[in-house]
Amino acid sequence: MNARLPLRAETAISVASPLEVMARLRDHFVEHGTVSGTDERWTVAFDIGEAEALACDGHVRFRVAAADPTSLAYLQWGVAEHVCEFAPAEAPEIVWKGGVIPGAPLPYFREMRVLRARQITPRMRRLTLAGRDLDRFSHGGMHVRLLLSPETDVKPVWPVMGKDGRQAWPEGPRPIHRVYTIRRIDIAAGEIDVDFVLHEGNETPGANFAREARPGDVVGMTGPGGGGLREADWYLLAGDETALPAIGRMLEEMPAGKKVVALVEIADHAERQELQTKAELDLRWLSREGRPAGTTKLLADAIRALDFAADASVFVWAGCEHAAAREIRAHLHMERGLPRRNSLIAAYWRHGMAGEVENSD
């Protein structure tokens, strides 16, 4: 394995069909990294490290390597999660040698405290959270999972490292979790900004937390994660208000000389924000004019109306409601013929349902 990746862990997992499990893993990993080798032994190189699989008599031996504890823990988690997914009936026992000690705090977890809050627009509230050792959250993804107390004045338990490499939970009230974007990070000050859309309704723990947050309130955080932009001549960024924090951060980090078209769906004109960038920006606000979120085709129709060549010169990033993401994905790949490697289309939420949606391209 790569000598520049000094942190290592390994495990041998007994399964009935090692080659079948390896094949399914390889087919999954090829979408996220570069795979090389044979059916019996292959290696996949990710942005965060490497994983190696070797078929042995009645089991698969895995070795993972990374440059930092968070990346190593992510690789352990990924291997364990997908082996259990691809061999569910066997309930394979997974025990790692090396890596984080079982029961120890997760290297990708931080306990954060609210410093301040302010209103950005009528429906967008920004919380500044403070924590220690935030350098790893400045790269490798801009999304985090916030762990929120299920009840007022009740501190939940925080996850720890399980022996199989996945999260384990001590006894006690578990937090509610939601995914958000780090809008701004200041490593030296130990601060991050997170923007919350103030959704209406009872099943909105993130919005409720943002409305009621006071200095000193505690929240857990794991991460970072989420895909970013690939190199291209110009970019199309599209999303509703839930993706606006990510679009705003990507624009701020975009270098001069790049061209960007940004399509942002908002409730009404009061939700417009000042977005800064060094790139050449064509910003278009798409107002629902009072119509509920998730009930229009503003984003999909706006993308259809754009005149652009679906080739290697463009990268499309979109974050929005599930049905809109599905329609945008189909239009780009099936109608325009845009290669899948030239897009990242994420379903941030689903109309009529509470919670997260795990669906991205």
Rank of each mutant, 00 (worst) to 15 (best):
A188Q: 05
A117T: 11
D153A: 10
R166Y: 06
T277D: 04
G190A: 03
V357Y: 03
I13G: 14
R183E: 04
F86V: 04
N359G: 10
L263V: 00
Q276F: 03
I182V: 09
E327L: 09
F46L: 06
L115C: 15
M161Q: 14
A210V: 14
P159R: 04
Y108A: 05
G225W: 01
T152E: 15
V83P: 13
A80V: 11
R145A: 06
I48W: 13
R214S: 10
L263N: 05
I192R: 03
T152Q: 13
H269W: 02
G58K: 13
R284D: 01
E40Q: 15
E327I: 11
T204G: 02
R329E: 14
G141H: 05
E85Y: 06
T242D: 07
D301W: 03
D164V: 12
K259E: 12
P339L: 00
W158S: 07
L286H: 09
L115F: 10
A318N: 14
A55F: 02
K278V: 10
V314D: 08
G225E: 07
W169Q: 05
V44P: 14
F209Y: 07
Q76K: 01
R272V: 07
P245L: 00
Y108M: 08
R288D: 09
R26W: 00
A267K: 09
A104R: 04
R211Q: 09
S343K: 02
Q119G: 08
A104Q: 11
A232W: 01
T295E: 10
F46A: 08
A310T: 14
G228Q: 07
Y348Q: 07
A188L: 06
A67Y: 05
A279P: 05
A73K: 10
I345H: 08
A232V: 06
M161L: 06
Q167H: 07
D311Y: 01
P205L: 00
L129H: 02
A45E: 15
E327Q: 13
A310I: 12
I120R: 10
D39P: 14
H82F: 02
R304G: 09
A256P: 11
C320L: 13
V15Q: 12
L236Q: 02
D195V: 01
W96R: 00
E90W: 02
M142Y: 09
E81L: 04
G228N: 01
F109E: 12
G190H: 01
A232L: 05
M22E: 10
A300G: 12
R178Q: 02
G99A: 05
S14V: 14
N342F: 09
E265R: 00
P102A: 04
G98C: 00
L129I: 03
R126V: 02
R132E: 15
V179H: 04
A232G: 03
R125L: 08
D133Y: 03
E85P: 13
E171C: 04
A53I: 10
D164H: 05
W285K: 03
I13F: 04
A104I: 09
I94N: 08
T242G: 04
G165I: 05
A66P: 12
